[in-house]
Simulated scan of single mutants.
Amino acid sequence: MEAAARSRKRGPYQRSHERRERIALAVLQLVDEFGHEGVTTALVAAGADSSEPTVLYHFPTKDHLLVAALDRMDDLEADLSGVDDGRAALDLDSLREVANAAVTAHDRRLRLFVMLRGQAATPGHPAAEYFTRRTERALAVWSDMITKRQRDGLAHPGLDPRATARQILALWDGLVLAHFSDRDFDCGQALVDGVRLLTGQNWIEGLAMLNRPGLGL
């Protein structure tokens, strides 16, 4: 009986959570189709099989809706990559492919990301809290992957994984902006080159080359 009572108490919350996720997914689909400029509460309500008052109850402004779309995008990508359960690995060939896919297949999502990144500097804007959460989540994932590469001898053992992760995130943000200035720019390769330099992999491979028999100094 006690378990049933707890279940009833969780019921409305669970329904509300599912409704919010459905609305966020509808926004993300509209972004993919029209770009963030084409998102309206009427279209969101239709896509989420809801009403405009319900949409606005959960997300009071368009900016809240757009932030929710990015949040939903992050969750979907995390499910695919396994970053939250430790399945992700920093394979540089895969990283190159993922980065290039991100700037080609999801151009409209990236434009939304860049737009909200700028809005995050405005006090009280919903994007500010989102980017704080996103940065912490990304730092944890990248720090873990760098630590694994240190154990495997693929990253300099003296690195601070978190500090290096922050540098890699800053590099990626800059590469995204470079992509919008030059659509032929190879973001994936530039990211891989940057990761190799920032993690000391170039140094490790150069040292290994010097230590090969017949090549030592």
Rank of each mutant, 00 (worst) to 15 (best):
R6C: 00
R6Q: 02
R6L: 07
S7W: 08
K9T: 01
R10Y: 03
G11P: 06
Y13L: 14
Y13C: 01
S16V: 10
S16W: 09
R20H: 04
E21M: 15
R22E: 02
R22P: 01
A24C: 02
A26N: 04
V27M: 02
Q29D: 08
Q29L: 12
Q29G: 05
D32Y: 07
G38V: 08
V39G: 07
T41W: 08
T41L: 06
V44K: 03
V44P: 03
G47Y: 10
G47T: 03
A48N: 02
D49R: 13
D49G: 09
S50Q: 06
S51L: 03
T54Q: 09
V55T: 06
Y57H: 14
F59R: 04
P60H: 02
T61F: 07
T61N: 02
D63F: 11
D63W: 11
H64K: 05
L65F: 09
L66C: 12
L66Y: 14
A68I: 04
A69F: 01
L70W: 12
R72P: 01
R72K: 14
M73V: 05
L76P: 06
E77C: 07
A78F: 10
D79M: 15
S81T: 13
V83P: 07
A88C: 04
A88P: 03
A89S: 11
A89D: 04
L90P: 11
S94P: 08
E97L: 12
E97K: 13
E97N: 04
E97F: 09
V98K: 06
A99T: 11
A99K: 11
N100D: 10
V103W: 05
H106N: 04
H106F: 12
L110Q: 13
R111S: 09
M115F: 15
L116C: 12
G118F: 13
G124K: 09
H125G: 01
A127K: 06
E129Q: 14
Y130Q: 03
Y130W: 14
Y130P: 06
T132E: 06
T135P: 01
T135E: 04
A138V: 09
L139V: 09
A140Q: 05
V141Y: 15
V141R: 13
W142I: 10
W142T: 11
W142E: 00
I146T: 06
R149G: 00
Q150D: 02
R151G: 00
D152Q: 13
G153H: 04
L154W: 10
A155T: 05
A155M: 08
H156N: 03
P157W: 03
G158E: 02
D160T: 04
A165F: 12
A165D: 01
A165T: 07
R166V: 02
D173P: 13
G174F: 15
G174Q: 12
V176E: 00
L177A: 13
A178Q: 15
R183T: 13
D184M: 14
F185C: 05
D186K: 14
G188A: 03
Q189I: 06
V192E: 03
G194V: 08
V195G: 00
L197Q: 13
L198V: 05
T199G: 01
G200E: 02
G200M: 02
Q201H: 15
W203R: 07
E205A: 14
L207R: 11
L207Q: 09
L207V: 05
L207H: 04
A208M: 10
A208G: 03
M209I: 03
M209Y: 14
N211S: 06
N211C: 09
R212K: 08
L215S: 11
L215F: 15
G216I: 12
L217C: 05
